[in-house]
């Protein structure tokens, strides 16, 4: 029996860069008993515009996304950053718009990041599956601070048979991606991601996971450039047991 209809907001990065994450999310949500739909007209949540000070364009994209997804019982995104945008920032962005303020608030209440949705809303406590690898989990800043996601991914990962979780010492430190930041300040971003990559290597992990593709592309890119052996994947791929696609940025050296 269906537990409700979920609109999957794939996020522009997953849609364009890593469909495997979208399929993993679909599978996890369907296994948890939801009917999942993926509206075709979805694009980007507008965060690049919002964070660049272009509030008008961001609001336009917010209205679009709300209209597209408000018919669903839940809206789930495999990204803390995009879910944070929809849940925390849309209501602020549209607060002064009388026609949309209320709609944005109601909509925001339905939005969740994928892994926290599984644990908090769907009540998933453990997952079947196994992975005999030593794994590090990187907390994305928006997932951690805007949505308070810390234990949920760790709980589900630890339920997989054979998986050993190691903690990074700077686990509440940013990887330096920051959306447009990595383009505007490439040198500072490079320093930050190098610190993070060094920490990942030193942790002894064989596989690095995170819930946000932005961080993952950044860290994977730096790890590959350093010639590291650590593989990189989105947490949803591991939780769904879908490892057929090669890791992000290819295999480690």
């Amino acid at each position: 029996m269906s537990r409700g209809r979920v609109g999957l907001f794939a996020t522009c990065l997953v849609d364009l860069w890593r469909p495997s994450v979208g399929f993993a999310a679909l599978e996890l949500l369907e296994r948890a008993g939801y009917v999942v739909e993926v509206p075709r007209a979805q694009t980007c949540c507008g965060q690049p515009a919002y964070n660049s000070g272009d509030a008008a364009d961001a609001a336009e994209l917010a209205r679009r996304t709300i209209a597209l997804f408000e018919p669903f019982d839940w809206v789930v995104a495999p990204s803390g950053s995009c879910a944070g945008m929809l849940r925390v920032h849309y209501p602020r962005l549209l607060a002064a718009d009388p026609a949309w303020a209320e709609r944005a608030r109601t909509f925001a209440g339905k939005v969740h990041e994928l892994v926290s949705f599984l644990v908090r809303v769907a009540g998933v406590e453990r997952l079947e599956g196994q992975l005999r690898r030593r794994v590090a989990y990187h907390d994305s800043c928006s997932g951690l601070r805007e949505l308070g996601i810390r234990e949920e991914p760790r709980q589900l990962l630890c339920s997989l048979e054979g998986l050993e979780l190691v903690e990074l010492p700077g686990r509440d430190e940013c990887c330096g991606f920051g959306g447009t930041f990595c383009v505007k300040y490439p040198e500072i971003s490079a320093r930050m991601v190098d610190d993070k990559a060094a920490e990942v290597e030193a942790s002894g992990a064989e596989l690095l996971l995170a819930g946000d593709l932005g961080c993952l592309l950044n860290i994977a890119g730096r790890l590959r450039r350093r010639g590291s052996r650590v593989d990189v994947r989105h947490v949803a791929e591991v939780l769904a047991g879908r490892l057929e696609a090669p890791p992000i940025g290819g295999e480690g050296a």
Partner: peptide, 27 residues
């Protein structure tokens, strides 16, 4: 499955590879 260099993306690729997209989009 990665690019070491890409025109107009020097800021990114000076310090890191660019992981390549899988190919077709999710949708």
């Amino acid at each position: 499955r990665r690019l070491r260099r890409l025109p107009l993306a020097g800021g990114w690729t000076r310090a890191r590879d660019l992981p390549a997209p899988e190919g077709p989009t999710f949708l």
